[in-house]
Simulated assay, not measured.
Amino acid sequence: MAETKLVAETRTAFGKGAARKIRRDHKIPAVLYGHGTDPVHITLPGHETMLALKVANALLEIEIEGSSQLALAKDVQRDPIKPVIDHVDLVIVRRGEKVTVDVAVTTEGEAGPETVVTVESQTLELEVLATRIPESVVVSVEGLTAGTQVLASQVELPEGATLVTDEETLVVNVTAQVTAEELEAELAEAEAEAGIERELSDEEEAEQAESEGDGDAASSDEEKTDEA
């Protein structure tokens, strides 16, 4: 993954008031720490930082007063309402150093007919070189049949990556597609167990009335037979 360069400024004003002023200037307050160094409080350019952090595990080159540090976003605090970032914690990394990150799981290919593919684990925890963090881990589901389960140990990892997630973790589950009739039966059973009386549709009411009519006619014929 290529590094994204962000030119930062050191800051000496702290507190909520100072942070609000920084954000009003379309910048983001942040702190850079790690590798035994003292935390450095900085300000990042708002727009460029938001674009960079749209990519998971983005490797950032933070330039401060002419010197550069590689860093990963450890914690990103976002505004619950507005599409803005309130604060970023950055951890320093070195070239050649390995880091532990959560990498997204994606699937490719088409599973067998009448199957449903479910990604049970959205991410896998991997140990990788800081400069070679993959954007995703790809699991092929091509031709997989119902009942197939792909565990973490069976996922093909990028070169140099080591699995940290438990090997027995279920990553992808392939199940048989549920028919409309089976879904309706399951719903009816669940409603019955919950004591819910479901309102019949017009079609169901007509079918029920017809069935009851057939039953009444059969009973009438039996009574006539008995009388004879």
Rank of each mutant, 00 (worst) to 15 (best):
E110W: 02
E110A: 07
A111G: 04
G112M: 03
G112V: 00
P113I: 09
P113M: 09
P113D: 03
E114S: 09
V116T: 13
V117P: 04
V117M: 03
V117C: 03
T118A: 12
V119Y: 07
E120A: 15
E120I: 14
S121W: 06
S121K: 11
L124D: 05
L124W: 10
E125F: 00
E125R: 14
E125T: 15
E125C: 02
L126G: 03
L126I: 06
L126Q: 08
L126R: 10
L126M: 07
V128N: 09
V128Q: 08
V128M: 07
L129Y: 15
L129N: 13
L129I: 00
A130V: 03
R132P: 00
I133E: 01
P134S: 05
P134C: 02
E135N: 09
S136T: 08
S136P: 00
S136A: 14
V137H: 08
V137Q: 07
V138A: 04
V139S: 11
V139D: 10
S140V: 01
S140R: 07
S140L: 02
S140K: 07
V141W: 10
V141F: 09
E142P: 00
E142M: 05
L144R: 07
L144M: 14
L144Y: 06
T145M: 10
T145K: 13
A146D: 04
Q149T: 15
Q149A: 10
Q149S: 10
Q149K: 13
V150D: 09
V150F: 01
V150E: 06
A152W: 06
A152F: 03
Q154H: 06
E156C: 00
E156V: 11
L157Q: 01
P158L: 03
E159M: 07
G160F: 05
A161T: 06
A161Q: 06
L163T: 04
L163M: 05
V164K: 11
T165H: 03
T165G: 02
D166F: 01
E167A: 14
E167L: 03
V172K: 09
A176C: 00
A176M: 05
Q177A: 12
Q177T: 02
V178D: 01
T179W: 03
A180C: 00
A180M: 06
E182M: 06
L183V: 01
A185V: 09
A185N: 08
E186M: 12
L187D: 05
L187P: 04
L187S: 10
A188I: 11
A188T: 14
E189W: 06
E189G: 01
A190P: 06
A190D: 12
A190V: 09
A190F: 04
E191K: 15
A192N: 08
G195V: 08
I196Y: 07
E197A: 10
R198Y: 05
R198G: 13
E199F: 03
E199I: 12
E199V: 14
L200Q: 14
L200S: 11
S201P: 08
D202G: 02
D202Q: 14
E204L: 09
E204A: 15
A206V: 12
E207L: 15
A209Q: 15
E210I: 08
S211K: 12
S211L: 14
E212A: 13
E212L: 15
E212P: 00
G213F: 12
G213I: 10
G213A: 15
G215T: 08
G215F: 10
G215A: 14
D216V: 14
A217M: 13
